[in-house]
Design a binder for these strands. Structure first.
Lengths: 262, 262
DNA sequence: CGTTCAGTTTCATTATGTGAAACTTGGTTT
DNA sequence: AAACCAAGTTTCACATAATGAAACTGAACG
């Protein structure tokens, strides 16, 4: 019995298979899964059968391929409504996006990664799941750093240990030390910048969403490009983004995330 | 509620617990789950532990409540992109909604239920997960009937066996015989109406989305109210909705759902 | 036909999940 | 404060359910 997320539990293994299928991003043959799977043929086969019968996977009999199933969409609907900030935040994200005319992201921390739970693109009116559900690195995005900066040390250490510190651009922080000093600055300042750390030419200003007790609920960002905007220019959105973050926190507080002690 | 997660498989049981949690629509205490669960305390407890550790549930330590977890959102993103019609159909749903100025639904069949995978509301510009993921009955909605009418007999029989035939309104078909004759009419006509069968005052015209091989991919509908519109009035949207359905089918065909034989 | 490859089934073995009961914790009553 | 209670957690003998090597099917190809 290993301590890894894999070794224990049939359910964990089945979910790992789900991740595997989802990771392909397209319908996938049994044999393709088998190649990447640590399990023997019969075992994988049974998992896939069970998951299909359960509606977690969809089997296309013509092509003989498996894809993530519709039951997931149903469950995700519930996840979205119940546990994500998005439904609470929607009004505020809308308003902010209208006011600033730039792309607005709403993100939460999912383990050590940033999970984008909502996105508003000023020009193109609608982005659906295509935006929600996307994950990104925490150490080199505005929202990621904004959240990390306000994490308790224990959680932060765990999260940092899982960062890849891949150098996406010349501005990416690639060491724990560098990141930690940046996080300290963010903590002191109260919000974060992304100085083209993830993608060249892309900058943003990001603000954490915190409970009164200081717990990190998520973060919000306004994104622009160096072609149109400077970091200083983004600062003019600060009052709006801060107000939105605080409004979301206040509503979330009353509604779903009350702190224990106050 | 459903007949899922019965005697077979640990994975099935765990997923049944997920459904249970999702069904509450709000963060839920362990004891609340226990009340509704067929499993003894220790068993349920272990499931909830495993699911939480796996990120399928989120535990709020302050309130001691469980809610669907963010891993679901991540997985659903993949499900959405890979297996749902929505990403392919989006452009067409948008265009149709703009053109007709009424609410447009895009649905797929999930077992015996209708799963709404996209929705465009003419007035309110954006609806996110709040609409996507919703489920409804197949036997008394326009999209449901449009899909049932083009199902192979074996699948249809299975689907019909699972309908509740609850009488929502005076117009609801409440027997298999009545439904079957309605389905025959729809099949002959090529599209379906909802004559206030699900909600009083709500009518719609719905068109199936079929592969060239005749396989049911989904359905699309334009909804209105008896206050504003008549069934005959909705007919004027038929060319547009049919064109959209065919365009979606054509794209889906090439892209993801090629028929085996042609 | 014989070979190969993808997918499916079998079955003895053993790991895993099971659940009654005991225990812990924290709050409420007497 | 002792007694009580309810919610949540852990234990452990037992039985069910998962495992995976190997055998099987059935196309597709030459």
């Amino acid at each position: 019995m290993t301590e890894r997320g894999q070794g224990d539990g049939t359910v964990a293994k089945a979910l790992a298979v789900m991740d595997e299928v989802a990771g392909f991003g397209r319908p996938v043959r049994f044999s393709e899964l088998l190649d990447r799977s640590p399990y023997p043929k019969a075992t994988l086969y049974r998992f896939v059968q069970v998951l299909t019968k359960q509606g977690m996977l969809h089997f296309d009999p013509d092509r003989q391929t498996y894809a993530p199933g519709l039951r997931l969409v149903r469950l995700a609907h519930a996840a979205w409504q119940t546990s994500a900030l998005a439904p609470i935040a929607r009004r505020h994200v809308d308003a902010l996006s209208d006011a600033v005319g730039e792309t607005v992201h709403l993100a939460q921390l999912d383990g050590a990664q940033v999970l984008y739970v909502d996105k508003r693109n000023a020009r193109q009116p609608i982005e659906m799941f295509s935006a929600a559900g996307k994950v990104g690195p925490a150490y080199c995005t505005g929202v990621g750093k904004a959240m990390l900066a306000f994490l308790p040390e224990a959680d932060l250490a765990r999260a940092i240990a899982q960062q890849s510190f891949h150098r996406f651009t010349d501005h990416t922080y690639t060491t724990e030390a560098a990141l930690r000093s940046e996080l300290a600055a963010i903590h002191a300042r109260g919000f974060a910048y992304d100085r083209e750390e993830h993608e060249p030419g892309i900058i943003c200003i990001a603000h954490p969403i915190l409970t009164r007790g200081g717990r990190v609920l998520g973060a919000m960002s306004v994104t622009s490009t160096t072609a149109r905007e400077t970091l200083e220019g983004l600062d003019r959105h600060l009052p709006r983004i801060r107000a939105a973050a605080e409004a979301i926190a206040a509503e979330a507080q009353d509604w779903r995330f009350p702190d224990a002690a106050e």
